[in-house]
Every structure is written in C-alpha cells, then in structure tokens.
Design a protein around this nucleic acid. Structure first.
Length: 488
DNA sequence: ATGTTC
C-alpha cells in the first residue's frame, strides 16, 4: 500500500488504482473515512488545491454513513468540494447542508436526440446557431419571455417540467426521460423567500452564464453499440446538449438558508470544522424548510431546461422547415448534478432512508433499477457528462458497482484553473477564433466568459470518465464533439 | 454558479 504526502499535510492511502483513502484518523472528529476516486496521473492536479481537506471536513457531518466521497472531477467548492458525494442517515439525526448541494441548485444537463446526421446540418450550422442564440437568452441576469407571478411560480416549484409541458413547452414523453420525471417531491413554495421568487419570475427558459451552455454536437465514437441504439445515438448523428440550472432563484435560496443556519448557531449542537458546511438535521424544522425551498428550486431548474428544450425545437423547426417530431427531437435524458435527495439503501443489512448529497456528481443508476423508465431498464441510466467546449462530452451508463457511491458518478471535466487564473492566462486571446480553427462555432453573451471557460481551464474529461469507468461506477456509451456552442 | 461586493 503506497502512501503519498501532499500539500494539505495529510496522507492519501492507495486502496487500488482508482481509489484513494483519507483515513478517519487524519483529522479529529471525522466520523468516517474519505475516498477520492482518481488515478496516479490525476492526483497532482487534485492535490493542487485544498479540495481533499473538504472531503475530510465533510466526513464530520452528523449522521454520515459509509464514507465521504469525491469523484475524479473534484475541485474546491463552497463547503463540500465540487465532485462530493455524502449521505446521512435521517433517523440518526443526519444533517442536510446547503453547502453540500451548492449555489446552483439542480444544475444539470439534458441531451436531445435528432435523426439528423452531420452532413444534414453542415451547411446550415451558422444559421442554426444564430437562430438558437436569438431564441435562448443567455448571460448573467438574462431574462426570458415567460413571466410568472407568485401564484404561477408556486406551480412551477411544485410541478417542475410538467408545468412547462402543460403550458405547451414540450412533449408529454419528455417527462418520462428526466430524473424524477422533472419534479421531485417535497417542494414547499411557502419556504421560498420573496426575494428568491422575484429573481425567478422572469428567468425560466434562460441559460445563464459561467459553465452553462447549449451545444450542437455530433457523435464521434460509440463504445457500446446496443446501449447507444437504445439511447438513440448513432455515429455522426447530431445531438443537442443543454447545461443550466435554477439561475438566480436557486442562488438566492442557498444564500437565504446558509444565512439562516449560521444564525441559529449551535441550536442542535452540531460540530463542523468549516462554517461553510453548516447544516441542520433533516428532520428539524429548519431542515424541512430548506428541503421545501431546495426542492422548489430543483423543480424550477427542470422547468427551465424543459422550456429551453422547447426553444431549441422551435429553432430547428424554423431552420429545417419541418416539425421537431419529424426531426426525431426526443429527450434522451435529463440529469441533476447539484442536489440532495432521499433514497433508500441497504446499510449493513438494514434498509435506511438516506439524504444523499450530490454536488458536482451525477446519479448513475444500474440496469434494472426501479426508478428507470422502461426503455432504459436493460441499459441502465444515461449519464450525461459535459466536457469543455473545445474537446468532447460523453454519455455513460450506470453500472451496478456504483451502489458503493450511492449510485453516483462524475459530472464533468472539473476545473484545473480558477476563473481568475483562466482570465489571466488567456489575456489578449480570442478564444472564439481559436475554436473556429478547430471547426467549432462559438457565440456568447459576454466575451470574457469564453476565456473563463477556455478548454485549458479544465481537466480533460476523457481522463475523468476513464477513471469512473475503470472504478466500475459507469461505462462509456458514446463520445460527442461540439460543433457549435452558445455560452452565457 | 450569481442582478459576479446586500
């Protein structure tokens, strides 16, 4: 067993080629071990920042079961690192922590199929991306055409994607192919502050900024023919990927509840090594309130991605002069990668209801799981992994071994540079021109965003998915390359 | 991520 020394004054013990242990003994108060999924090649970039300490910190959470985990795309985040997975036992006063969900509640990704091949869109791609850019508002503070008053907002919070479909923004079948069918239980609109309501009232159907994007991609490589066929993916086929979340609403909800939880101090006698990991028992009044507001935000995010799906279909209809149905624009799947959910697991022979926090981590259900739609029973869950805008993205499928991570896997490439660092090293560069030289058309609301999101600011997503595949959490189905990108 | 320092 090899032992490596690293910056944060700890030890990572090699469990196997893809699992690295932070032993409980590392820090006083850790209730369980920490495990980071990585390989030798990736470790230096992971150890470059303090994210491993955040894994150790999260192992202190009251009620935590099994181990605190981080996926290979781990990097420094608020409280829990991006890439973190922690589950608490709600019957053991287990906590829920807003820092374990993140500010962009239900940030997530959806993938839309088409029956188009690259050759069908090659000549129309500029027009297509311009129409998409005009249809889907993007950028910080961007507003959409849909306005919802507080009564209508409450419906969005409860019904999620179904609200959008009922309004005409989508197909009934879209709801089959979204995690939670696009609306989780437990939303309580009365727990959302008026300021959060206000911020959400005109942002449905907007992309936002930062790493959020809309891409037209082509399937470059198929790794699993049978599964790809069932998912609706074929070589050189065109797909559309949408990456966004709950916008200003979720951000406000996180802000509100972190503040509330800090304010109540040690009412529940909870000890944590980092204030950013502030949390309350799931069953406490404050916990129930946060869950009501978080679920409302999650459902808003599903409505948001659903409305954007509608706008994408309208854009394709305009450019191809036929109905989206004729273009085969069905939803392949929609995943959340910033969320806390209640799921049952067998823990040492006992069935327990756990609060599973996935922050920069994606659910990865194995074949046969009852939560999966009929179409994906034999394949396992489509796991959509966005990469950076210059390289590629992946579709994986869930595998049974992922039960050890509460059916979780990675969520993307993971940053290797902070936003500021990326801005500094790309000063004076025209990222859109660089992308154009590689055959990728980029449109953005704010040019600086392209530099913050430059491919070099990210790890190579291929390295990340190879690790989760070799660790057995999920396996590769298809690799897509971007041909046109919209950024905020 | 974010009406990017209420």
């Amino acid at each position: 067993m090899g032992i490596l020394k690293f910056m944060f004054n700890g030890k990572l013990e090699k469990l196997d080629d893809y699992r690295w242990l932070i032993p409980k003994s590392y820090m006083e108060g850790m209730r369980v071990n920490g495990i980071i999924y990585a390989d030798e090649k990736l470790l230096p970039s992971i150890l470059k920042d303090n994210a491993p300490i955040q894994v150790a910190n999260s192992a202190h959470l009251q009620g935590i079961v099994c181990q605190a985990m981080a996926m290979p795309d781990i990097h420094w985040g608020y409280g829990l690192p991006i890439g973190g997975v922690v589950a608490t036992d709600i019957e053991k006063n287990g906590v829920i922590t807003p820092g374990g969900v993140g500010y962009d509640i239900n940030c997530g990704v959806r993938l839309i199929a088409t029956n188009l091949m690259y050759k069908d869109i090659a000549k129309k791609i500029k027009n297509l991306i311009d129409v998409l850019f005009s249809f889907v508002p993007s950028g910080v503070g961007s507003n959409g055409k849909i306005k919802v008053d507080s009564k209508e907002s409450a419906r969005v919070f409860i019904e999620g994607a179904k609200w959008a479909v009922n309004k005409g923004y989508g197909w009934d079948s879209d709801l089959i192919f979204a995690e939670e069918n696009g609306a989780m239980k437990g939303a309580d609109p009365s727990k959302v502050s008026s300021r959060a309501y206000e911020r959400g009232q005109d942002q449905i159907g907007t992309l936002g900024s930062g790493n959020h994007f809309l891409e037209i991609q082509t399937v470059e490589e198929i790794f699993n023919e049978d599964t790809a066929r069932i998912f609706g993916l074929q070589k050189d086929g065109v797909v559309i990927m949408i990456h966004t979340g709950s916008r200003g609403l979720g951000h406000q909800v996180c802000t509100d509840y972190v503040e509330k939880m800090v304010k109540i101090g040690d009412k529940y006698g909870i000890k944590i090594p980092d204030r950013q990991l502030v949390g309350v028992p799931v069953k406490s009044q404050e916990g129930v309130d946060y869950i009501g507001a978080m679920s409302s935000s999650a459902n808003y995010a599903w409505a948001n991605r659903q409305v954007i799906t509608h706008l994408v279909r309208r854009a394709f209809e305009q450019v191809f002069e036929t109905r989206a149905e004729n273009l085969g624009m069905r939803l392949i799947y929609d995943v959340a990668h910033n969320i806390a959910k209640f799921e049952k697991y067998n823990i040492s022979g006992e069935e327990k209801l756990l609060c599973v926090h996935r922050k920069g981590a994606t659910r990865s259900l194995a074949p046969g799981h009852k939560e999966l739609p009929q179409l994906y029973q034999k394949t396992g869950q489509p796991v959509i992994i966005p990469g950076d805008m210059g390289r590629c993205s992946y579709v994986l499928r869930g595998e049974e071994k992922a039960v050890e991570t509460f059916y979780s896997t990675c969520h993307g490439a993971g940053r290797v540079m902070s936003r500021n660092e990326a801005l500094n090293v790309t000063r004076g560069r025209a990222i859109d021109k660089e992308l154009a030289e590689q055959g990728i058309i980029a449109r953005c609301a704010e040019r600086a965003t392209l530099r913050e999101e430059a491919p070099m600011a990210y790890k190579n997503v291929t390295d990340i998915v190879n690790i989760v595949e070799k660790a057995g959490l999920s396996s590769k189905v298809a690799k897509m390359k971007p041909i046109a990108v919209i950024k905020g």
